[in-house]
Design a protein around this nucleic acid. Sequence first.
RNA 1: UACCCCUUCGCCAAGUGGCAAGGCAGCGGCCUUUGAAGCCGCCAUCCCAGGUUCGAAUCCUGGAGGGGUAGCCA
Length: 555
Amino acid sequence: MENKSAASNFIKTIMMDDLKEGRVTNVMTRFPPEPNGYLHIGHARAITINFELADEFGGKTNLRFDDTNPLKEDVEFVKSIQEDIKWLGFEWDGLYFASDYFEEMYNRALVLIKKGLAYVDDQSADAIRETRGTLTQPGKESPFRSRTIEENLDLFTRMRAGEFKDGERVLRAKIDMASPNINMRDPVIFRISHTHHHNTGDKWCIYPMYAFAHPLEDSIEGVTHSLCSLEFEDQRPFYDWVIRETEMPHVSRQYEFGKLKIAGTIMGKRYIKRLVETGVLDGWNDPRVFTISGMRRRGFTPEGIKSFIREAGVSKSNGTVDPRMLEHFIREDLKLKAPRTMGVLKPLKVVITNYPEGQVEMLDAEVNAEVPEMGMRKIPFSREIYIEQDDFMENPVPKYHRLFPGNEVRLKHAYFIKCEEVVKDEAGNVVELRCTYDPETKSGTGFTGRKVKGTIHWVEATSAVPVEFRLYDQLVADKTDEEEEGEGGDDLLSAINPKSLEIVQGFIDPGIKDVQPEDKFQFFRHGYFCVDSQTSTPDKPVFNLTVSLKSSFSV
RNA sequence: UACCCCUUCGCCAAGUGGCAAGGCAGCGGCCUUUGAAGCCGCCAUCCCAGGUUCGAAUCCUGGAGGGGUAGCCA
């Protein structure tokens, strides 16, 4: 069951007060991605925050593609974004495109021009930048700032009609070139771009800028609380200015919250792109990157991801969380859902010398001992089995409970075995163990004659299914800051953890051989694994390590 | 050095003037056919300095530290 009663946060407080004081009569939020890339866990957080906050107050949430820049957008992404949101388990109320509002936006710009609050500027982009001033010095007014309303109306109409080339003119809001807030120094609100748009085709050659478009989009849809990240704080005065001066009937309000990074991973689009191009990652859905598709392929669950997001909270400070917190919630969700079975990653053969040759017996095992309703299954046992290489030490370290010469351990679901002999190759490597078993110690018989300290997992040798295991670790060190890894992420390549992916060939219990992509299991004493959706085949299953089990022991 | 924002346990984060929630991590112990899980217990006086107040993490003033903003990107 998902925990939905997360702690309070400042946005929830604002919504509650707004409702109580009658400033709003309902809550309406929106998730407004630009369709220019794949969603990642940061988006999952924005999605969860928007949808669940609205839901908590009986409100609604729209999905709105903020597609005001045709140069960067593609339908490919409008599809993948919708799939990702659905996979997370959210249903949007309305599905909209900012580009559907272009006509309305154009008309609102006309309102501004008629009020003398917008003008067409013929200056070049460079000239505009140079006269904007700096952080400490005011800007200079454009020589075109005092054009008449008629002239502006004429020019803007002709901009729309396609009479000018890209960059020749822009429409600017007329506010205050000396404002200490640079966003108020006559920001550009429409630019010319003769570019095909994925939704509007070639109907438009002028496109509104985000800062002008967004408040209008929100207002048109009746959004009450427009949530965005901290870097938009300085744009709020302009957001309010647009709604007020264009005389939009519905007043939306913008609130900003901090982004939450996860240590040890890369989130930036350009960096992931770089790593995909150089072959470090095998795609945008590589299980090591926290794109939604990557997490899905890794075996993370929507419920686990959402629990993590709720528990991490929302505030006005930017933070970085320990990836172990995310892992905790993934484990917690998988704990009662995933069947538990045995898989040996690094096999070591064991021959049970006193077990009858040729005999195979079927042992009973719970599918998940914590969930009896999941039932029982049978697993084969015989004279030859594989155990984990790490579960044997010829010269055991102190407190080692596993197998070593002369020691007895329990084989999960089976018998006690005792290590009698170690077989080595010429190089001195241990290649086989010869053990004896005690029939009286069979699991389920209630044997209490003696106790052993260790229980280890195993698979029967003749029926074991060969599989590939892909073990993942953090992509980069905890403190790696992608922003500081050189132009284009050059230095990022050397920051990659060489152990972020380790591939091993092992065996699993034959009981689960007919696996489907994304099927999830817990392999005893290892962790949760998920059948890889890209490379697994019926002949050679491939399992991704979703998250390992915790361990208080290490050699 | 212009404007805006932030500063509570190792990491997230509640708290909105009345004696510091919770989660993760960590540390003990119990239990255990996963060294898992589970269970029990431990783990901060709130960046600093003044001030207001019977009383301040919460209000005020001044510092310090961190972040954001100068796209015809979003």
